[in-house]
Simulated scan of single mutants.
Amino acid sequence: MLPALEATALRYGITPTAAQLVVGVYFLGFALGQLLFGPLMDAWGRRPVLRGALLGFALAAGLTVVAPSFGLLLLARGVQGFFAASFRIGVTASVRDRYRGETMARLLSYALLVLMVAPVLAPSLGVLLLGLGAWGPYAFPALLGALAFLWSGRFRETLPPAKRRPLAWKSLEEGVFWVVRDPRAIRYTLALGGVFGILYAYLSASAQLYKDHLGLSNARFALAFGATGLLLALANLLGPRLVARLGLGRALRLALRGLLGLLLLLPLHALAPGVFSFWLHLSLVLVLVAFTFPNAQARALEGLGRVAGLAASFTGFFSTLLAALLGAGVGMISQGEPFPFALGLLGLGLLGFGAGEAAERRGA
């Protein structure tokens, strides 16, 4: 969507900053959806809920192609994000159904690779799709959703009926109790909000940052985004080896400290940003975000196997809502200007580092 923001603004007669809401509203829907899909999957199983959500995603994405007004476009994007939340919950809960600890962290690193890397690689594809027209980047997710729905008939259920929890208030209340009484889960939820907020802020403001303030063309912007995505993919592939060697807790603490160090230097760099050096600095920040995210998610759910779906919903909803609100705020307020953008990322990093350190001290 990022290369399409300017075309979207022209199509609906709005400002480029307002067009950022196409990204922000999707993430808001993504946060809200996570609150619902975990309990549904705990009650009805992973497979049927996920298949229904895939169909809803495809239909909502199709509506974005033909939306006659910007308001309807935003509504469709929010619904699209809402159904997309089931993908994260389904993956996380299904992995937790079968694994825990470092094995779970390793598998989540591979599974959540898509969640982290796809948004960074997508602008390169978006530039090509714009050649079809302003509707091109909106039509592609609809096509992917339809294909994924057809393919989902091959999914295997990981939650047998004997382990399902009824969709009743008493059952939900009991599940929430298990989550909120786990201090590590609460602290890592806050850490996930700060760390993932860095990615959201980057996605929201990067078009203005790279094109308006650093002078990149649309094609070079897509190239810079794609190169960052490749670095993130490499980090996710190598991350499990580091976790296996150092242990989950120690590797996570080192990553959070490295992330904070890079973010402390970023505002100084932003005072006189060179295009390549600033791109590299931001890319290294995002590499550590990509490493931290699945491992912090695994750490948050480590003691919550009996309510994996609801726990994934709880931690996913609050961390994503926090990330979406703070990340969108950084993007809207900074409007892509390097120095205020760097300060905003530093604030998000301080939240992630502080909450993560507190969680590990509590668990030590």
Rank of each mutant, 00 (worst) to 15 (best):
S109Q: 06
T158Q: 07
L73C: 11
T103H: 09
K163H: 09
L150I: 15
R100F: 12
L199P: 13
S94I: 08
A205K: 02
F82L: 08
E157A: 07
A191Q: 10
P119Y: 04
G153I: 00
E173C: 02
K163E: 09
S204G: 08
P160K: 08
R96N: 12
A134M: 11
G78K: 08
E174G: 14
R181L: 06
W178T: 05
G193E: 07
E102W: 06
V180I: 15
L115S: 06
K170I: 15
L112D: 06
P137A: 03
P119G: 00
V79Y: 01
D97K: 01
R77T: 11
G153L: 10
L63E: 03
G175S: 09
Y202R: 05
F82V: 05
Q80W: 12
W151A: 11
E174V: 14
L203K: 07
G145C: 10
A76L: 01
F196Y: 15
A122K: 04
P119H: 04
G133K: 09
S171R: 14
L129S: 12
L63N: 05
L121S: 07
A67S: 14
S171F: 15
L203I: 13
F83C: 02
S124G: 15
T158N: 10
V127G: 00
L199V: 13
L132V: 04
P166M: 00
S69W: 00
T189M: 08
L203D: 05
F70S: 10
